[in-house]
């Protein structure tokens, strides 16, 4: 996960296997293109997204953490109150 140059365009995350909206970054098309929805007992849908990590702008890809337990937390927004 190398540091990415942070340009002015707002980078977006994408589900791996779907074509990225308008990003020029390489997205490797995978065989599975059908829409998965997250359910317990099934594979967590893989994704790749821009991230801030310890002082750097980088990307994070869920499947890079295979072999580890992962706690994936969505929340409404930075600077919200709880």
């Amino acid at each position: 996960m190398a540091e990415k140059n942070a340009g002015c365009a707002r980078p977006t995350g994408a589900v791996v296997g779907e074509s990225a909206p308008e990003s020029s970054e390489e997205t490797t098309p995978k065989k599975e293109v059908k829409m998965q929805i997250a359910q317990v007992g099934t594979k967590a849908p893989d994704f790749e997204a821009p991230a801030y990590y310890q002082g750097e702008f980088t990307t994070v890809k869920l499947s890079d953490f295979l072999g580890k337990w992962v706690l994936l937390c969505f929340y409404p927004g930075d600077f919200t109150f709880v």
């Binding site: 997250a38 359910q39 317990v40 007992g41 099934t42 594979k43 967590a44 893989d46 869920l62 499947s63 953490f65 295979l66 072999g67 580890k68 337990w69 992962v70 706690l71 994936l72 937390c73 969505f74 929340y75 409404p76 927004g77």
Partner: peptide, 14 residues
Amino acid sequence: ELRGRFIIDPDGVI
């Protein structure tokens, strides 16, 4: 996003 919390095992299974 809503508050969504997922525990994913080493095989990538939720």
